[in-house]
């Protein structure tokens, strides 16, 4: 009773083996693994590739390169925290960029209104996933596998499988390329899109950790039936999660137009899986309820660092893919090991 509650350990650490102690620490801070991997890989590639890699320019370039997948990973994290999965994030994003681009460039809708329409449509597309998952009690994997195809087909239909060219956007609606602008700090060139990604993660972290809604999201991912019995309106909360994920994808769509420069209905086809990769490497459990959304940011950055680093030391692209594959398996193995404590 002499312990103050804050500094009292939750377990008797002295009795544990070193490995057991690591397990406990990771159990409490699942984001520690991606942080360590990120710092270690930046350090390692810094040594191996030197200036080429470890320059403000290259590091800011990495952030810029992962910004779109990072934003998708933020949306993906929300859904995975509820023990779901969203295979449609990239499809929503591309569909929204096509809708926004077509409205502004082809139909001459004022750009700001076109963007608002896009954001609304994104939230609506996400909410559709949520309604199918909750009201019709269908597995998220199947629902979003279906909507992935549906949104992709809609996107091809609306765009006629034609890109909207960069010059046309510049002429009709330069606002659509807003997030492609950049600020130069020293040698670094931070695009607005990079900043946006960080802001999105910070905002979602706040929502998840500092509001009641966030606690409910974790509780649902942990044990949906228990959450329902504890008085959480789980269906409603889940729909809000999917809708918010859709909204984040729509914001990502705006950023993607700035990043790519044009609107291409064929772009980001691998975005769904890449976003899941970032989330998994970030230490968020696919079983829901565990992990921090910040992990997904680190996960996205780790992928970016590996790609840039391996390329700069002259390793073939196929080995980059090879390395990422092992990272995924390693991350899931660590998650399983950590979760054993809970049993």
């Amino acid at each position: 009773m002499s312990h103050t509650p804050q500094d009292a350990p939750a377990f008797d650490a002295r009795r544990l083996s070193p490995l057991g102690r690591v397990q406990h620490i990771l159990h409490r801070n699942p984001t520690l693994v991606p942080v360590i991997v990120l710092l270690a890989s930046v350090g390692a590639f810094g040594l191996l590739a030197g200036e080429k890699f470890f320059s403000p320019f290259n590091l800011s370039l990495i952030i810029q390169q992962v910004s779109i997948i990072g934003i998708l990973a933020a949306a993906q994290s929300l859904v995975i925290l509820t023990a779901g999965i969203d295979l449609s994030v990239a499809a929503i994003m591309v569909l929204i960029s096509v809708i926004t681009g077509s409205l502004a460039v082809k139909l001459n809708v004022p750009p700001s209104l076109a963007i608002l329409c896009g954001l609304f449509a994104g939230a609506l597309a996400g909410a559709m996933n949520g309604v199918l998952v909750t009201r019709f009690r269908l597995p998220p994997f199947i629902v979003t596998l279906g909507t992935w195809n549906i949104f992709f087909a809609l996107n091809l239909w609306l765009s006629g499988a034609q890109s909207i060219r960069s010059q046309d956007i510049d002429e009709a609606a330069p606002l659509l390329k807003f997030f492609g602008n950049n600020i130069a700090v020293g040698g670094a060139r931070l695009t607005y899109g990079s900043v946006l990604m960080v802001v999105i993660f910070a905002a979602l972290w706040y929502l998840l950790n500092r509001t009641a809604w966030g606690r409910h999201v974790y509780a649902i991912g942990d044990d949906r039936d228990a959450a329902e019995l504890a008085g959480i309106r789980t269906a409603r909360t889940l729909i809000s999660v999917y809708a918010l994920a859709g909204l984040v994808c729509a914001v990502g769509a705006w950023a993607a137009i700035g990043r790519v420069g044009s609107v291409s209905p064929q772009s980001f086809y691998e975005g769904n899986l890449q976003s899941i990769t970032a989330v998994v490497i970030g230490g968020i459990s696919l079983f829901g309820g565990r992990g921090s959304i910040m992990g997904a940011l680190f996960g996205a950055l780790i992928v970016g660092v590996f790609q840039s680093g391996l390329r700069l030391i002259g390793v073939d692209v196929l080995w980059q893919v090879f390395a990422i594959g092992w990272l995924i398996i390693l991350a899931v193995a660590i998650d399983q090991w950590i979760r054993k404590l809970a049993a």
Partner: peptide, 26 residues
Amino acid sequence: ETVYQNLALSPALSIADNMFMGREIR
């Protein structure tokens, strides 16, 4: 208020989070 036989707690969340689940203080 009910304590169900299976308790209806969220295992990964803290004691405080669980006690105030659904009636958090702002």
